[in-house]
Amino acid sequence: MSAVAPFGARLAAAMDAHGPLCVGIDPHVPLLHDWGLSDDAAGVREFGLRVVEALGGRVAALKPQAAFFERHGSAGVAALEDVLAAARAAGTLTIVDAKRGDIGSTMGAYADAFLADGSPLAGDAVTLSPYLGFGSLAPAADLAARTGRGIFVLCLTSNSEGHEVQHAVGPDGVSVAASIAAQAAVLNSGAASHGLAMGSVGLVVGATVGDAARATGTDLQAVHGPLLAPGVGAQGAGERELAAVFGPARRQVLASSSRGVLSAGPAAAGLRDAAARAAEQATSALRG
């Protein structure tokens, strides 16, 4: 077992210290242009490093979206490694938004890339897709537990196509989303029995999915893990929407804002002001 405190415990402490806000590092092409940066590996590297410099030590977590770096090939991946290293040096938790999912040794290789000690692509947590079966994620869940890292499993996403799979009901009458949440809860049961505020296996639940949790019978509170909620800010989710989606599980929510904060850049002062406002709003909505 790792000597590092479990991810869930570290995230809970960071949320208490800085508010329940995660800021995405999503170097969209229009944002790069707005910031006066080139759409290449050097541009996304500079973008990410500026976000870390402005917000490191000021927010609960940063969430670089791997795809925006990977689209520039090996140099873009190297840029992502540099951004993760900078966040690590700043003492800020990182969630690599990679949404990986596979089986067997291939899933094990993804786990090594994003969760192994010494890997330059390893953050403090990674997002995963469970749609080859939740059990296929075992190599990542096991390695995360050994290294003190976390995983966030896609559960109820806000894209219009998500319901085709997530709301589907099996022969046992249980929806796919409810089954994913229940299996995450099992992995977090040890944390709950040890009195930890949150386990290290979280779910991704869109902040704009309305009553999807209720409609699918998904018990988010029972997960006893963090709930990463994209869609806060630019995508329209405010206090009312967060309350409707998460209900009694609100205190587990890590609200994620990307464009809502990033559009205030590139000046560090603008990014810090926007992040502070977003954190204050998230705190009011989720912990009031």
Rank of each mutant, 00 (worst) to 15 (best):
W35V: 12
V96C: 10
G225T: 07
L227E: 04
A264W: 07
G123A: 11
A141Q: 10
G43W: 06
L115W: 08
P30E: 11
R272P: 00
E241K: 00
V205T: 05
M1N: 09
A285G: 07
G91L: 10
L137W: 14
P20K: 09
S258N: 12
A274T: 02
D112S: 15
L132M: 15
D26I: 11
A184Y: 00
A116M: 14
A278Q: 12
A85H: 10
F47Y: 15
F114G: 12
S105Q: 14
A168E: 08
F134E: 03
G57E: 09
Q183T: 02
V186M: 06
T127D: 03
A213L: 04
R250N: 01
T283K: 13
E161F: 08
Q221L: 15
A213R: 04
A17M: 00
V176Q: 06
M198Q: 15
A249I: 02
R272S: 11
G8E: 11
D117Q: 15
G76C: 13
S160Y: 02
G150V: 08
G288P: 11
I95G: 01
S2G: 00
G24D: 09
L121S: 14
G260T: 09
A109C: 07
A197P: 05
S284K: 15
P6Q: 01
L143F: 05
M198G: 05
G231C: 05
R88P: 00
I25Y: 06
A86C: 04
D39Q: 13
L128F: 06
P230D: 13
Q235K: 15
D142H: 11
P6L: 07
P27L: 10
A90V: 07
T283C: 12
A138P: 00
A177P: 07
P139H: 01
C155M: 01
A213K: 08
D117Y: 03
S2L: 03
A275V: 05
S284Y: 00
A185T: 05
G288F: 02
A125M: 13
G56V: 09
A275C: 11
S189A: 15
A5F: 01
G190F: 01
A111V: 09
V186L: 15
S136K: 06
L62G: 00
L254H: 05
G260A: 13
G247N: 02
S258R: 09
A67V: 07
H72L: 07
G43N: 06
G43H: 05
S257V: 10
A279N: 13
E46K: 13
V253K: 01
V176T: 14
L228T: 11
E239T: 14
S257R: 01
I103F: 09
A42R: 15
